[in-house]
Each structure stands twice: as C-alpha cells, then as structure tokens.
Amino acid sequence: MLVKIIFAGFGGQGVLSMGLNLAQAAMDEGKNVTFLPSYGVEVRGGTANCTVAISDDEIASPVASSPDYIVVMNQPSLVRFQNQLHSGGVMFYNSSLIETGITRGDISLVAVPASEMAESMGSARSANMVMLGAFTRKTNVVSLDTLIKGMMETLKSKPKLIAINKQALTAGYDLAQQKAHARNVPGSF
C-alpha cells in the first residue's frame, strides 16, 4: 500500500499541522512515512501546502505528482491542486470557503464545512482538525485513536489546545460517519 496526500490552504489555516498529525499517527502505527512541506517565500502569507506519503514499503519519493487524495482548505488551493489529483481519487474540500470551481468529473468529492463547524465550536482555527477527522473517517489511513494520541503528543507543550483539537477531530470524524451512513457512497455528501 502506498498513499499520497496533498494538504493545501492559506498560510495560518494549519495546513502543515494537518499533514504532520497524519504523518505522526501513521508513524505510530508502524508505517513508513514522509512529510514534505512547501518552503521558502510561499509559506509566509500566501498558500501553504505539504505532501504526506504513507506506505508499508520504502517510500521512493516524498513528492506526489498525482496524489490519491487532496485536501483543499480554500479556493486558490482548489484551483492549484484539483488537476493533480489521480483519476478516481478523492478530493476533500472546505465547503465553508469553497463554493464553485470544481471542474473534475472523474474524482470523488467530500465536502466538509470545516470552518463553520470550527466556528460553532468557538475555535475557528480548529477547522483543520475538523477536516482531518473527516479525512480519517473516510480514508481509514490511520485510526482516530492514534490520531488523537499523536496530536496529544505533538501538543504536550500547549495543553490548552488539546481539548479543543480533540473535540474538532471527533466532530469531523462523526460528521463523515453520519453522512456515510446516510448515503453510504464515498464522497457524496
């Protein structure tokens, strides 16, 4: 198994920490994993993105030219990355900030109102964790338990953030579960 995921969004949306949390969880589950951030001028401000590769085997390249999944948190990221997605791949998008512009017909879509859900929890900055929760439920790349444990490890120096992040991850996970039960077709909600 080799899975490659690109996470993309505004700088400040926690795009890199989404990727890092997933990578940490995959590592904790004994997988081979690479995490490659975009770096340089583009991380300060503009868009940020990172690529995570998870595999049972050695990972040849940390770069994803045609990823299996993309997770886009804002409109510019959608424009930039949707055409890279592997045919038949799944695109997770933040439906709170992305309303139009999806042009691919050969991929599955998963709409997650991540920003709205995070705001309703009183923590707009946790949209990334809502999204990551939903991603995890849909893809089963890692388990929610390992994800939460990994997040707690990463944030052990900032204990205040643990509770809200855990809440956001679980909310995203549960949302995806409900929707999956409702229609039982990947990517149809």
Binding site: N32, V33, T34, F35, L36, P37, Y39, P62
Partner: peptide, 8 residues
C-alpha cells in the same frame, strides 16, 4: 528536499 522533509 532531504533537509525539509520529515521522516521517522
């Protein structure tokens, strides 16, 4: 790339 990427 090796400098920036994270691996276990």
């Amino acid at each position: 790339m090796l400098g920036q990427m994270k691996e276990p």
